[in-house]
Design a protein around this nucleic acid. Structure first.
Lengths: 221, 221
DNA sequence: CTTTAGAATGGAACATCATTCCAGATGTGT
DNA sequence: ACACATCTGGAATGATGTTCCATTCTAAAG
């Protein structure tokens, strides 16, 4: 080479694990849109090629990051206790994880049957026998619960994206405003329900829906 | 001007409606990733600036396209009849619409409480009184149903994206293969259920989950 | 009929992104 | 000392969403 190449080498080896950790840090701190390879190379002080040596693509990286977060929630301490309580605990764990890391919600809806989703599927489905759901109905039942959790996850992620910066009250007020301006003739239910929008708790509403499904599942046995 | 400018002007005026229609055509024919402003300008034989005069952004365009598809399904013929049947009909309409236009599923999970989602929310929530759900519980109940539909919608969209080209059987076989290779100790439920994966019907499973929720909702009244 | 302001158009230019490519540097086994 | 695979950093590359701007058209006003 002609010029004086610095020749410095990183003392801390670049690992897939460290890359995923850096990605999670960026996602948590600045949101989904901030995760670019530029931001990653800057934070890890390296080049894009080095990252691509450990990671296949950005999708791969996002899937690994989501899996990392979900894995922490679905590793169940022990399997005893009430099945209904256990399912509630796992679902709430996923809900809280997505509440803390909204980008996970968006990611889960993107990857259909990949590892993060399979973890949730297993954690929930494995408890259905204890809930009294007959084996033949367990597939449908688990799919229903997972789809519900994923729906809430996606909505939470979308809300977080829209409400970025502004506080929750102001965000809900904006939505309520938009709903109020709808035609009351064509949207009577929306109008009727707008009042409850401002002071509703997402977490509690999530639990209410979960109980609805669990009640239906138990009733069908 | 110096050179002979063609000076041609389109005889058919460019409308927001025509742009949305062109976008839907591209999305249906070639999938989500094919909708670019370059593809749009080519199809409409115009420039990017002309499109931006009628449309605020790509997100705006996607939201309008999704709203267009959903509006066709949620305009209810008439409100009589069994409430449960009506909710099933609307939900199935949304399911089928997303099955025919998978990109709508991805879009619905992206826009939190925008017009397309409000339509579904109204169509479902407006029937809850007829189902016997007490007013105080209707908000939670409608949210649960909508979240479930959205979860299924997102999964369908993700599946369509992954299975693009290959037929359904081959796609399911790939998933089943991946599930079989999981550790049977940590994923017993997934293993047990893999057999049912190949010959399950998405539409029927969607209905099963819907009935689960409706049963739970009716039971809580 | 002429003038004029705004609506609408088409395409070039721009900034940004994911990804690829490559010239090296580093370590390991022989 | 040598060769080889692993690993690194940064410079291209190609594609995308968006902005900018010089025009052209339309319709109302003078």
């Amino acid at each position: 080479m002609s010029d004086a190449r610095n020749g410095e080498r990183r003392t801390d080896a670049l690992t897939r694990g460290r890359i995923v950790a850096a990605a999670i840090a960026i996602l948590d701190a600045e949101g989904e849109r901030a995760l670019t390879f530029r931001a990653l190379t800057a934070r890890l002080s390296t080049g894009a090629g080095a990252i691509y040596w450990h990671v296949a693509s950005k999708d791969d990286l996002l899937a690994a990051a989501a899996d990392d977060v979900i894995a922490r929630v679905t590793t169940e301490p022990s399997g005893e206790g009430d099945a209904r309580a256990a399912i509630r605990a796992v679902s709430l764990g996923v809900f809280d994880a997505i509440d803390a890391h909204p980008w996970v919600g968006a990611q889960l809806t993107r990857e259909p049957w990949q590892s993060a989703m399979v973890r949730i599927f297993e954690s929930i489905g494995g408890r259905l026998t204890g809930l009294g759901v007959p084996p033949a109905a367990q597939f449908d039942c688990a799919a229903t619960l997972v789809n519900y959790v994923l729906g809430v996850a996606g909505q939470n992620a979308a809300n977080a994206r829209l409400a970025a910066g502004a506080d929750r009250a102001a965000f809900l007020a904006t939505i309520a405003d938009r709903w109020t301006q709808l035609d009351p003739t064509r949207f009577p239910f929306v109008h009727r329900v707008t009042a409850q929008l401002s002071d509703h708790d997402d977490r509690q509403q999530f639990l209410a829906g979960l109980d609805l499904i669990l009640t239906g599942a138990a009733a069908s046995s």
